[in-house]
Amino acid sequence: MKPYGYVRARSVEEATAAHAAHPGARYLAGGTNLVDLMKHGVETPGTLVDVSRLPLDTVEEPPGGGLRVGATVRNSDLAAHPLVRERYPVLSQALLAGASGQLRNIATTGGNLLQRTRCPYFQDTGTPCNKRAPGTGCAAREGVHRDHAVLGHSPHCVATHPSDMAVALAALDATVELRGPDGERTVPVTEFHRLPGDHPERDTVVRPGELITAVVLPPGTAGLPSAYRKARDRASYAFALASVAAVLDVAGDGTVRHVALAFGGLAHRPWRARLAETALLGAAPTEDALAHAVEAELGLAQPLRDNAFKVPLARNLAHRVLSELAADRP
């Protein structure tokens, strides 16, 4: 591990100023991923700006509704929050499906969004990886890639984003609040993570020095029926082979009034299934309609040599979750 400086910030202003003052700085929150990567020599920050004690650890109800989740709210606390469980069950379920109890106790909301892929080649400095070392090539494309992307990958990178929480946030139309040298801005979670394209080294649209201060859950999806389902190699503590977050609101006339479907484990970012949603909105959520909608979305899939199983897996999961939500309505 490369020696590094350490600064503990007491305010958001102090944090962004410290980041600006130290070239090669990185923000440190729970550290569950960043510190591992530093040990492996994958991340080599010059300075860590510790933001874990900033006063961003509360869940608040803004006057207009929804929830504003501070960036340092721990994953365990967010999953257990009564208003989250009541109004956004998909988020609570996704959080509890991720990592282990110990990790959720230390990992933060902001850090969860910013975690890096678990591609073995990304984590191994002895192999090529365009995400870790741009221009060296993608070892996974022809290497060990059962866990890798089937949607939206590029010749340069086939990594997936590992977060469960982010998949739920994408389905809930949540937004990310950022504070940086040029002030504040807001980015929808669905646009927060990038597809790899020609620049897989850029996971997100976060600009240099920007700090996540909060994630906002909108009033529009509060209280709508929602669910998260994840398929994995073991019953706990495993990344998603595929996962589904869905929100489905069926009107009194039996047609879909609101639908959001997002896949995890399939792409470089949570994959919002817009084609499926378009097909379902305003239609009756019959088994056939659900099947066709999901099929339309997964028609975009381009599996690699060893991960074609993810396509039927995601299809079955999505169909099941949507079908259960459709059947559950009062």
Binding site: S100, A139, E142, G143, V144, D233, R234, S236
Partner: peptide, 28 residues
């Protein structure tokens, strides 16, 4: 749950931590 993959391209085994080498968890 358990398996290691001999990496044909680079040699060695691809699973080198307890997040990727899956011993059963309590829930299993």
């Amino acid at each position: 749950t358990e398996h290691s993959t001999a990496d044909p391209a680079f040699g060695g085994f691809a699973e080198r931590d307890l997040a990727s080498y899956h011993v059963p968890s309590n829930a299993d």
